[in-house]
Design a protein around this nucleic acid. Structure first.
Lengths: 122, 122
DNA sequence: CCTCGATGACTACACTTGTAATTTCTATGA
DNA sequence: TCATAGAAATTACAAGTGTAGTCATCGAGG
């Protein structure tokens, strides 16, 4: 049962997964331009993540260094499975079929996926 | 911009997508066993969906007949794209790769997807 | 024709989320 | 040593969600 991470929190996590540990200000620098959030908002999100033990804090003088405690892969696996379960009865095929039919898959995408599947079978 | 449908609301929609129109009680019959909700909860969810114009209502004596106004396919396309965009940078391959690596894909799944992709290229 | 039970409408209420403002603490430089 | 700037902690607050309880109404059966 990985702790639930909201959309806004997820944006913070992406920054920390790319690089860590970081201070709140450093995280804010990375994220504010995309998101248009204030520093306070970033700090709130970091606190909430820390409260859920999804990021860890280490005191460093008068500030904190934040680091992810959950790996990106673990998180992605969880949400992906949840997504596929809820919307496609747990089967990946209908998802791929759906994306394909909705023209969300380019010819390149298809080639890439085929290549990947060939690799998997070995 | 399809209206946002929450998780609980989605469960209601699945029932209506399978069969419609249905009365609130009929929907509840289909969903209560899985979900353990009360009839009132189902009615609330139906009202909220109706308020968002995601389901339509037609008076039938002293009750309503509810029907989806949004197609399942349209909905799935929206949430799928959103999901893939947010978590996998809009690329489906990493999602498939991820599920595969996390052992969420069986050999059968892989064969099925390959078959599907072959079809698509024709 | 009147009552009762089913049904929709309205209300409730705590928790989460997005988005901060305000208050309190603390280390550091004058 | 003491003020102060920059952090953290606390508080805010509206919208959305999960999960109902309660109220009002209307139609069918006695």
């Amino acid at each position: 049962m990985t702790e639930r991470i909201s959309d806004a929190e997820h944006a913070i996590m992406e920054v920390l997964w790319k690089q860590s540990p970081l201070t709140a200000t450093e995280v804010a620098d990375q994220v504010i331009e995309h998101k248009g959030w204030s520093l306070q908002t970033v700090k709130t999100l970091l606190s909430r993540l820390a409260a859920k033990a999804v990021v860890g804090t280490e005191r460093d003088g008068r500030r904190f260094q934040y680091s992810p405690l959950v790996e990106r892969d673990t998180y992605l696996t969880g949400v992906s499975r949840n997504f596929v379960d809820r919307l496609f009865g747990g089967k990946v095929m209908p998802l791929v079929a759906h994306l394909a039919e909705a023209d969300e898959l380019s010819a390149d995408d298809i080639r890439e996926i085929e290549q990947l599947l060939r690799e998997l079978k070995k």
